[in-house]
């Protein structure tokens, strides 16, 4: 059974159709890519899956349950986590606290527990802190744990965003241009990291990416959007040789 199934997904902003009747399926444990020229509607698809936008038409099934109309936090709690194209960390919180917020929903401490802080509060805090340190260590961020997120380098901020998303214990991780602004060495590290995440945490990952080396290098399946519509999907080889895709990227005359 597929993990995520989007059917006939459509988003119109006034007269503009940003996403046009897209149908796609993501299998558990798969590594999939969503590519297409700028303005093709890729991020809009992410925003609909995560509940930031309500689709004009179409359905989204996650674990066979419809998530259309759910709030973003409800969708996150059902197991879809994401990062953002223009990094959205909590700038005034430390790296540790950024990730800690991702554990908020799993925490059993209620309002009064937060205020009165009984013994079990501290037990739970320690358990969560250990998990956070484990995650930070995995991403080589342990030394930065008390730094404010806004003071980190760009690449580190991108990684903290992924750690924060992982903190919610997702089944599906959406990465919006994770390699943007990285140098070739960092990109190779990122590719290894993405594969590692999938294998270690047994999750599916869907990423938007412009860097073809990254996409072709790690994705098992790729869907191509152009002007909001899906023009191709398949293995990297299939997509690479698809005339429609070449036309979309290079233009008619090519």
């Amino acid at each position: 059974m597929s993990l995520l199934h989007i059917n006939n997904l459509t988003m119109r902003f006034g007269g503009l159709t940003a996403v046009d009747a897209v149908t796609e399926t993501i299998e558990p444990l798969s590594l999939a890519g969503l590519i297409g020229p700028n303005g093709a509607g890729k991020t809009t698809v992410f925003n609909m899956i995560t509940g930031v936008y309500q689709p004009t038409e179409g359905e989204i099934l996650f674990d066979a349950l419809s998530i259309v109309g759910s709030n973003p936090h409800e969708i996150a709690n059902q197991g879809i986590a994401r990062t953002f194209q223009n990094i959205r960390l909590f700038p005034s919180l430390s790296v540790f606290d950024n990730v800690r917020v991702g554990f908020n929903n799993a925490s059993k401490t209620g309002l009064f527990g937060s205020i009165l802080q009984p013994g079990r509060y501290w037990t739970e805090e320690k358990e969560i802190a250990d998990k956070i340190d484990h995650l930070l260590g995995m991403f080589g961020l342990l030394d930065n744990r008390q730094e404010l997120a806004k003071n980190l380098s760009y690449g580190d901020q991108r990684r903290v965003e992924i750690v924060r998303a992982m903190a919610t214990d997702p089944k599906l991780l959406l990465l919006d241009e994770p390699a943007a602004g990285m140098n070739p060495t960092e990109k190779v590290e990122l590719m290894n990291l993405i594969r590692y995440l999938r294998d270690e945490f047994k999750i599916a990952i869907l990423l938007i990416e412009h860097d073809m080396k990254v996409v072709m290098g790690i994705c098992e399946k790729i869907a191509v959007l152009d002007h909001g519509a899906k023009i191709a999907s398949g293995t990297p080889e299939e997509v690479k040789n698809n005339p429609e895709v070449i036309k979309a990227y290079l233009g008619e005359s090519g």
Binding site: T50, G51, V52, N71, P72, H73, A76, N77, A81, R82, F84, R88, L89, F90, P91, S92, L93, D97, R100, V101, G102, N104, N105, S107, T109, L111, G113, S114, I115, Q117, Y121, R164, A165, A167, T168
Partner: peptide, 21 residues
């Protein structure tokens, strides 16, 4: 605590806070 971090996350970036549940 849990709640305070939720407050601050909400202040810093509501969309990001929602995205982590």
């Amino acid at each position: 605590s849990t709640y305070g971090r939720g407050f601050l996350a909400t202040r810093d970036d509501e969309i990001a806070a929602e995205s982590v549940g």
